[in-house]
Simulated assay, not measured.
Amino acid sequence: MKKVFALILAAVLAIGTLAGCGTDPAGSSAGQGEGQTKDLNIFTWDGYIPQDVLDGYTEQTGVKINISNFESNEEMLTKLEATGGGDYDIVIASDYIIDIARKKGGIMHELDTSKIANYNNIDAAFQGQFYDPDNQYTIPYAAGTPVIVYDPSLVDIDIQGYEDLWNPALADSIVAMDDGRNLIGMTLKSMGKSFNETDEAVLEQAKNKLMELKPNIRTLAVNQLQDVILSGEASVGYMFASQAAMAVEANPDLKVVYPKEGMGFGIDNIIVPAKAPNLENAYSFINYILDPEVGAKISSQIYYLCPNKAAAEFLPESFTSNAALFIPSEVLKNTEFIQDVGETTAAYDKIWTEFKQQ
C-alpha cells in the first residue's frame, strides 16, 4: 500500500515518453487488428480526458473516439458485468472498484506491455498496488488526495488537521465533499483510526462524532467546491486536491493544509475490458497518453497528480508551484488508500444517510 508514497516526482506527475522515432506517434497499429474498426470506445467520468487530448489522438491515428460517461464506479462495474465488457475499449476507474473487478475475474484484459512502447515511463511508485499487485491490468492515469483549504482572512484559528474542523469558531463555514467514505473516513482519522475501519463499535463512535460536525457544515457538494470558497460563501473546504488547486490558482492567499492525522489517497487507472472490440486501438491510445507532452497536457488541465516520470519538464510553473499538487514526500508517506470494506459498506452507507438527513 505504501509504495505509492515513494512518489516524489516532486509530487509532480507526468505521463510517458514517445514511442519511437519516425514511427506512428501513437506507437501501435491502430485499426489494424482482426475485426477492428477505426473506432475507440471510452467509458469514464464526464470531462476526465481533455478534449484537445482526444482530438490529438484522432488526428494522429484517424481513429474516431466515442465517449460514454458514468456517475459512479459502481455504475461502471455494473455495466461492464452486464455486457461482459464487450462495449468498451478503454475504461478509467478508481482503485478500489478495480480491486473488486479483479477479484471477480473475467472482466479485465491482461495487458501485453510489449505493445506499449511508452510503458516504462510510468513511475513505479504508482504500480504494484493492492488492486493490481502484479501490474497485469492497469495503467495509472491520475492520482490525488483530499486536503483542507481555507481563507486565512476569514478564519481566526490555525487549522492543522481534521480535528480543527469541529471548532465552534467554524460554525456554518465549511464546504465539504458529498462523499460518505471520505467524510466518515476523515472523522475516523481524527480519532486515530483507519479510513477502512470495520469495527462496528468504532463506527458508531465515528457516527456520533460526525453528527457533531453538522453545525459547521454550510454545504455539501460534488462539483465546483472551489467556487464556494472563492465566492466567500464558505471560508473552509475539505475537497479533492484538484479542486483545492483550482482555488489556490485563482486566489494564492488561500492556505492548503495537509491534515496532520494523515490523508486519504487514490489512483484512477485505465483498464481494458476483457472483450474490448477494438483491442489494438486500446493499446494505441494507452501509448499515446503515455507521451510526456500529452501527459503534461492532461495533468495541467485536470489538476491531478499523473504517475509518469517524463512529463514533469512539460508542466507549467503554475502547476508545479501549487501547494495542493506539489505535496511533500514525507506527507505522502502518511497517506492511506480508501478500500472496499466488504459487508461493512452497509454500515458506512447507513451512517452517511443519517448524517445527511439530520
Rank of each mutant, 00 (worst) to 15 (best):
T219V: 12
Q243I: 01
R181D: 00
L210N: 02
L210I: 05
M239T: 14
N208E: 15
S194P: 00
I229Y: 00
I229H: 07
V155M: 12
M211Q: 11
S235C: 01
E212L: 13
S190E: 06
E204Q: 14
A221Q: 01
A176N: 05
L188W: 02
G237R: 08
V202H: 09
Q160V: 13
L165G: 02
Y238N: 04
S190D: 01
K189F: 02
G192E: 05
D158K: 13
F240P: 11
V155S: 10
S190K: 05
N196A: 01
M239G: 08
L213N: 01
V236W: 01
Q243D: 15
K214R: 10
M191V: 10
P146S: 12
A142L: 15
Y141P: 06
A142F: 05
T198W: 06
T219C: 01
K209A: 03
I157Y: 07
G237L: 11
T187A: 06
G185A: 02
G161K: 02
E204D: 14
S173M: 05
V202M: 12
T187P: 00
N216Y: 02
K207L: 13
W166L: 02
V236R: 07
F240K: 10
I174E: 04
S242K: 09
I229Q: 11
A142G: 12
S190T: 03
A234G: 07
Y162F: 07
N223F: 07
P140R: 01
E200I: 14
S235M: 12
K207V: 03
S235P: 05
Q160G: 11
L165R: 04
I217L: 04
I174N: 10
K209E: 03
T145L: 10
G237K: 08
A169L: 14
L225R: 06
G144Y: 07
D158M: 08
V222R: 13
